[in-house]
């Protein structure tokens, strides 16, 4: 037994100026979209959670934002990373016609979802938004509407604009959202006004990843074990969703 699985990087694809997708030489056939893995870089002495953006083979989509993700993005083909997981509650695929709404690199796990929807014959329409063209991710394996805040590509405006465009074509059985929390909240509220439920993918500072330490709490929920996927209804009365996260010491910080 070992705590981590050693995985080799088999391919690296630049999605845009900030985001890379790493393809590993391992598969997780049992993994669901929305689940995450803990990725350990022993040479960097740190471990962070990443949503899966594919399962066979495993793909991780990484935005070079902090020190760790920059190191991860700096790795070359053939180098190894250490993985444990998959963990958490992923998306639940339901219905016959679904809408996926992703902001920034939050679009990555929705591509995995679109892939699974396709396998099951569920019709998916995706909305992929970013601040500007150079931060957009690659499309999902389904029709993808792009939006940019500055209008440099696709529809000018945020993902809600794209979502309205999608809704003008009719109703969906379910909405799936991933991105900044305030964005997801807005998506879920708009969906609700159209009588649709939303599954959304949350994020908090994570330590153990397996429901023991309690660090990733969001109100009474644990993002790692109860989530990261929640139905919006489950979070409507949550005291911290959309409001507060906790830093490395567990201090409350306004979102």
């Amino acid at each position: 037994m070992a705590s981590h699985t050693v995985a080799k990087i088999r391919g690296i694809e630049a999605e845009n100026e900030l985001v890379k997708t790493l393809t590993l030489d391992i598969s997780m056939p049992q993994a669901a979209p929305g689940q995450f893995v803990m990725c350990w870089l022993p040479q960097f002495s740190e471990e962070k959670p990443f949503s899966l953006s594919a399962k066979s083979p495993v793909r991780l989509t990484v935005a070079a934002r902090g020190a760790f993700s920059k190191s991860l993005c700096g790795l070359a083909r053939g180098q190894r990373i250490w993985i444990r997981g998959p963990y958490g509650r992923g998306f639940e695929l339901k219905g016959r016609r679904i809408l996926l709404v992703g902001g920034g690199y939050g679009f990555a796990p929705l591509r995995f979802l679109a892939e699974e929807a396709k396998k099951r014959g569920i019709a998916a329409l995706a909305v992929c938004g970013a601040r500007t063209k150079s931060l957009l991710l690659k499309p999902a394996p389904c029709e993808t509407i792009f939006t940019t805040d500055d209008g440099s590509a696709g529809i000018a405006g945020n993902v809600l604009e794209g979502m309205r465009r999608a809704l003008s074509r009719g109703k969906f059985d379910l909405v799936y959202a991933c991105g900044p929390e305030k964005m997801m909240e807005a998506v879920a509220k708009l969906a609700q006004r159209h009588g649709m439920r939303t599954q959304l993918l949350t994020e908090r500072y994570m330590k153990c990843g397996i429901g023991a330490c309690g660090h990733c709490c969001m109100g009474e929920k644990l993002v790692c074990a109860d989530g990261p996927m929640f139905y919006y209804e489950e979070l409507k009365k949550n005291s911290e969703f959309g409001k507060v996260w906790r830093d490395k010491a567990g201090r409350k910080v306004p979102l």
Partner: peptide, 9 residues
């Protein structure tokens, strides 16, 4: 802040 990860395996 405690230690960096991995903190529990």
């Amino acid at each position: 802040e405690g230690h960096s990860n991995p903190t529990m395996v």
